[in-house]
Nucleic acid binder design. Structure first.
Lengths: 180, 180
DNA sequence: CAAGGAATTCAACAATCGTTGACCCAATCA
DNA sequence: TGATTGGGTCAACGATTGTTGAATTCCTTG
């Protein structure tokens, strides 16, 4: 029974990596199973199916505990750091990619949006004292995620440069400065 | 030969509607053909395949002629209007949805990003006199598109309200105010 | 060693996908 | 009228997908 938990974990890790970064619909169970070094059948056996595996990857996806330690004064720099480091490391599943790739999926989009709202948007709104500011902050972060690839290939503000960080900081701060 | 052009047009219209709004991978050729009232085989016949049909929908997707009539002073309000009207009408294909749904697709993502860069980003950069401002402007617009559904279902600034328009205007203006 | 249960693999399934070539219908032209 | 061509349908293909139940290996226990 101990061995089963280990492979269950491997499937979860590989599934998160592949599904978050390339999209739920674009990844097959056989691909995930191969990456985990086991047979396809184990996915349905342990998680009840493809959707079940994806749903399992959403547990604690937004690392709420880390979010709780932030304040309105430190959140901008925290997200700037998040953007400056993780996004280009495709082996490290990035929560912004999760949303960009799957928030509008026909099968699991609703799960993603619900997780985002509960795990991120609501705590952020409470911290900022404004649901609108939280929504705008999220929109700014998401927009930068979506546009990142285009900005990178067109040679504009490639990720990792000070210019890019300045842009991210500017847009995030603008969201917080919004007053209805 | 004239009749063929008419059905070709119908396939193009229905294909754009479905593929733009629901995503390239989520829509089948049979679905598009049924919506157009013809057989599936005609897609491969007229467009050389699924990818060919999608590529055909990208021609003039960004309505450059309308873009050329805008100025740095009017573009914000133009995009605000675009956001306030079209996005919720699923029958009317929206260019922001095209990007959000397909810019990261494994099969056609590169086509979408290339079309966006050539048809929108570059003219916009020329108009604004800054590639960085254009990229940020695009990021702000995209972020609002991605976040829209989440904002709507969480009851925050539903589309069509003055509050939502104020948010859109604020984020777009912030992108233009960026100075490196 | 033998037995039994857990862990995993294997083989096959039904469904769906894009694509292709043969076939059919209607309009045109000699 | 009869032949021809463009426009369209039909049926089938190979490939891939998620899922399932039986078979098999592995490991622990008696």
């Amino acid at each position: 029974m101990r061995k089963a938990d280990a492979t269950r974990e491997r499937l979860l890790t590989e599934g998160r990596k592949l599904m978050w970064m390339r999209g739920y619909g674009a990844v097959s169970l056989r691909e995930i199973a191969t990456a985990a070094g086991v047979d396809v059948a184990l996915v349905s056996r342990y998680f009840g199916g493809k959707r079940g595996l994806f749903e399992a990857t959403l547990e604690g996806a937004f690392a709420q505990e880390a979010l709780n330690e932030l304040t309105p004064d430190t959140i901008v720099e925290a997200v700037v750091t998040l953007f400056a480091t993780a996004p280009r490391n495709t082996d490290d599943p990035h929560v912004m990619r999760l949303i960009v790739m799957n928030a509008h999926d026909e099968d699991v989009g609703e799960l993603v949006r619900a997780a985002q709202a509960e795990q991120f948007q609501e705590p952020l709104a409470a911290m900022l004292g404004s649901a609108e500011k939280a929504a705008l902050f999220m929109a700014a972060a998401l927009g930068l995620s979506v546009a990142e690839k285009s900005m990178h290939l067109s040679g504009i503000a490639p990720v990792g440069t000070p210019t890019y960080e300045a842009q991210v900081r500017h847009m995030l701060q603008a969201a917080l400065d919004f007053s209805s």
